[in-house]
Design a protein around this nucleic acid. Structure first.
Lengths: 256, 256
DNA sequence: AACACTTAGTGTCAATTACACACTTCAAAA
DNA sequence: TTTTGAAGTGTGTAATTGACACTAAGTGTT
């Protein structure tokens, strides 16, 4: 049998938290501050919220804890999508500096299990003093260089989201309880980065049974008011519905 | 900022290695032997091949190393599918006994990153003295109780395989270079656990462009000889083909 | 030589689904 | 009352799915 590594790695979870507002997908990022003595350059940078996994919790619990400490929310859509463990993933000076204050073994590597979370960003109230002084929703097109390999992780999350959304009805997690058909279409268009036909979209969504129309309509808009819909959470979660598959460009299905 | 756990976890990779022979999906499992002094019961049991991740390697490399040490093969389809980190995942007496000889910190938990591998099982020659004295291909329907949470991991792998196979043309990795259309259909039927229509299957497969017919046919079979096909590895890997989607029962596609 | 046996291989039709496309409705604001 | 802007609605064509049964090509047997 082979030899153990000389030093156990640290294991963390990182959360890629998606939100949707002003017609853009956004990530909730935290601002970290590095002790000034070590880096003489700028002393703060953005990173994904994350933390080391504690002795008594499993990975899902650790991710849920991070999410709750930052946003105050529980019971939200949270799904593991990939573990990252490159030995060199922590090589930037700022990262090493920040970790000095957190890790036990300064030379041990950090392996992280990445989660993606989908939130109605209106519900989020950043919790003071939990992870950082500051957390911001940044459009995915404007994500700066992040700490560690968090840019890779974010990109992985986006790809995973794009895939998932085509297989399961989860996009609703990014919207408020009540939403209009246009809200929903815009969301899908944003995630998939392509335009969808309005009439076909409505038909498919309604036929799918994943949403229910409310009697209620918009008020005070200066055009024809849109109807509100809700996501049939119970129906979908109890398997009362078929598998939902959003076909991709150039795809085809196999088998009878 | 929160407090670190008191003891760093061990991090391992485990490989769920799929093969296909005699019309059944099989897993390659190793037999582990526990020091007799500790357990007075049976002193061996099956487990997934795996190992602790070493300091200088990333997760993919660790998994590839495990695979190579066991089978001698490189360049195999190998894909991370989930990390498992329940604090109680190692609670059976046999597991603890076995780990005594391997881990540095007997009380530290073990977090594992699980990979699935797809192999043409004819190519496998078990390497002597690597992981265990013995390794066997067991039909997935006959997997006994495994060490650790390896039954959970195996089931997760099977679900992941079933999903993957419907999105990407990867089933070929389980077959020899040359295969007949019936071989391929039987494989899909085995993985998906449902019957497929022969004519529709052939049509779809040929139209998809993922396979090419060879001039060669079977010899010495006591019936009409079947044509051989090969998987278009280059074409598929270079994105020269569309996304392949095997539709699921009751599914439907959304959007134009 | 004829026949039995077994698996390979082939085509069509009906039903469903995908996709493209343009005008009317409703409310507020001017 | 008219203008403005987004909501909402239907149809025809093309492509895909899925159901279905017989012939072809070998080997082995009588």
């Amino acid at each position: 049998m082979s030899v153990s590594p000389s030093l156990n790695p640290h294991v963390s979870v990182d959360c890629v938290i998606f939100g949707f507002s002003k017609e853009t997908l956004r990530l909730l990022l935290i601002k970290r501050t590095v002790p000034n003595a070590i880096t003489e350059l700028d002393d703060s940078y953005y990173a994904l919220p994350g933390d080391l996994v504690r002795d008594n919790e499993n990975l899902d619990e650790a991710a849920a804890r991070v999410l709750k400490e930052l946003t105050g929310l529980t019971g939200i859509f949270l799904q593991q999508f990939q573990a990252f463990g490159d030995p060199l993933r922590i090589s930037k000076a700022k990262d090493r500096a920040w970790l000095q204050g957190v890790r036990q073994d300064p030379d041990a590597r950090v392996i992280t299990v990445a989660y993606m979370a989908l939130i109605d960003s209106n519900k989020v109230q950043i919790q003071p003093g939990s992870f950082s002084k500051e957390a911001v929703w940044l459009p995915i097109a404007e994500i700066p260089e992040l700490g560690f390999d968090h840019n890779d992780i974010s990109e992985g999350a986006l790809l995973a989201l794009r895939e998932k959304v085509q297989i399961q009805p989860i996009a609703f997690e990014l919207l408020p309880e009540k939403f209009t058909m246009s809200d929903l279409q815009t969301l899908y268009e944003t995630i998939l980065e392509r335009d969808l036909d309005k009439r076909n979209f409505r038909r498919k969504m309604l036929n799918s049974g994943v949403i229910t129309a409310l009697p209620e309509k918009q008020h005070g808009v200066s055009n024809k008011p849109a109807r509100y819909y809700v996501f049939n959470r119970n129906l979908v979660e109890n398997g009362g519905l078929g598998f939902v598959n959003l076909k991709m460009e150039g795809s085809f299905t196999l088998f009878s």
